[in-house]
Write a protein that binds this DNA or RNA. Structure first.
Length: 489
DNA sequence: TTTTGAGTTGTTCGA
DNA sequence: GTCGAACAACTCAAA
């Protein structure tokens, strides 16, 4: 079914789905044809290796879903405004719709695009959809922003969220389709080297898969979520972060599933909803204090003597999963192989880097950006700063994760460690061996190597971190990070 | 304005 | 092994 009316452009970005899509619904409501487009602009191309690769998978899934509904996804590469103007000129479109983004770079781009298109006489409209609560709709009684999670949670937990919108069964096609790039030619996997195939095997891609994943989680795991979610060896988490990142599923759908489970008396449902609201809190902070993305969120931390060499031997050991601390190394390898890391493990490796190795959180965050398929700037900036101590939390400075104690607590039978560390095992599991398939050959690692001696002992690392904090707090100078001799245990 | 209670995720030590 | 206390002091949010 085609029509000669001018189409409405749907500019897809981080909303690669068809359900719960207000921009799409509004376009369909006009009765005009719909022209879905994805633009690979320079800003998007700058994201980390794994994130860019995963984005490509998501684009492919959306293209297939559109095709099944009589439509197509037009791909263009270049500055967003140029590409949109080209498409408008080619198709005679009078309107462009998109879902709002919240990071400063996207806001700057979208503001400029909207102003330029409006000046061209085009109806440019942005819609919500990436968040449950718009950041400017949440404020404390004094009219300020929330800086502590619990009050934020209390403020939003009872609120209504947007109703769910079914995916349109059919998208009216324009009279003629403009030319499209070929997704394969974009080579979004180029920076992954040999790891793309390994990581791809762990990705759950697309809207239908995300929905199935949510359904399965609610059916099998949400009831035990509260107790099991801290054990990285258990399949106790929803895993939906990668889908939420690319908008393959709406937070509204996830929230609604949690709400239904809560009504049904599921013990873990509220904890699950709280995790989803952590994502909202991160966006709240990014919106109101965008410096959280690159600067210490709390004042004064610029004087803390983080080590800043991303190629220092102990930092390389951290990246490669060779610190000699099994829980840390297992987690870093899990990330390299799967593009994901269990939440508890993220805290432990972040604590290890920022406290035991006294290394700047931004170095760790940058590595996460390259390795995570669920990479999200708001969530990562908040999480890293929270662990490092310079972020939004009343963290007692003496809270230094002990990676050995944590393993005893959360991986007592060492299932997680054994799943990811091959060295020393007579018959390493496939997961642990796959790490050596994923890493670059230049690292020169083999599963037959000896497992490394600890870079620094957990106890000494803790004492050194506390001493560094104490020295910084008292305004002493001269602290330069790694100034003590590493000790093996 | 002042007061009050509370703050995701911890560790260690000693009874 | 289990449990409670100590680890300091500060900021936030609401009353």
């Amino acid at each position: 079914m085609t029509t000669t009316q001018p189409p409405v452009l749907i500019w897809f970005r981080r909303d690669l789905r068809l359900a719960d899509h207000q921009a799409l619904m509004a376009a369909c409501a006009t009765g005009q044809p719909v022209l879905p487009v994805f633009v690979l602009d320079p800003e998007t191309e700058g994201i980390g290796a794994a994130a860019l690769f995963r984005l490509g998978l998501s684009i492919g899934a959306l293209a297939r879903d559109l095709q099944a509904r009589g439509s197509r996804l037009i791909l263009r590469r270049g500055p967003a405004l140029d590409c949109l103007r080209d498409l408008i000129a080619e198709t005679g479109a009078q309107a462009v719709h998109w879902s709002r983004a919240y990071d400063p770079a996207s806001i700057a781009r979208d503001t400029q695009v909207k102003a330029a298109l409006k000046a061209d006489g085009i109806a440019a409209r942005s819609f919500r959809g990436h968040l449950l609560f718009e950041p400017w709709d949440v404020s404390n009684k004094a009219g300020g922003i929330y800086k502590v999670y619990s009050p934020f949670w209390k403020a939003v937990r009872g609120r209504d969220v947007d109703a769910l919108i079914p995916a349109p069964a059919h998208l009216p096609a324009p009279a003629h389709w403009p030319a499209s790039d070929d997704l394969g030619n974009w080579r979004l996997d180029a920076a992954m080297n040999c790891g793309a195939a390994v990581v791809a095997a762990h990705a759950v891609v697309g809207e239908a898969a995300a929905q199935a994943r949510l359904d399965r989680f609610v059916d099998t795991a949400i009831a035990r979520y509260r107790s099991d979610r801290d054990s990285p060896a258990l399949d106790a988490c929803s895993g939906l972060s990668e889908n939420l990142t690319y908008g393959e599923i709406s937070p509204h759908r996830v929230w609604a599933a949690g709400a239904r489970a809560l009504e049904a008396g599921s013990a873990g449902a509220e904890h699950f909803q709280k995790e989803l609201v952590w994502r909202e809190f991160a966006y709240h902070l990014m919106h109101h204090t965008p410096h959280i993305l690159q600067d210490n969120w709390k004042d004064g931390w610029a004087g803390f003597g983080w080590a800043t060499d991303p190629d220092a031997p102990e930092v390389v050991a951290w990246k490669q999963g060779r610190t000699g601390i099994p829980f840390v190394d297992a987690a870093m390898r899990e990330m390299y192989v799967t593009g994901r890391m269990h939440n508890r493990a993220r805290m432990i490796v972040a604590s290890y880097l920022t406290k035991h190795l006294l290394t700047d959180w931004r170095i760790g965050m940058a590595w996460f950006a390259d390795c995570l398929t669920d990479w999200d700037p708001a969530a990562n900036a908040m999480g890293w700063q929270w662990v490092a101590g310079c972020g939004p939390d009343a963290a007692p400075y003496f809270r230094v994760f002990n990676p050995v104690t944590q393993r005893d607590k959360f991986d007592p039978d060492q299932r997680y460690v054994r799943a990811w560390i091959a060295e020393g095992q007579r018959q390493p599991p496939q997961s642990a061996l796959s790490y050596f398939d994923a890493i670059p050959r230049s690292w020169g690692l083999s599963h037959r190597d000896l497992y490394p001696v600890p870079v620094i002992s957990p106890d000494m690392g803790r004492k050194r971190a506390l001493a560094a904090y104490e020295a910084w707090k008292q305004g002493q100078t001269g602290h330069t990070g790694l100034d003590a001799t590493p000790v093996a245990t």
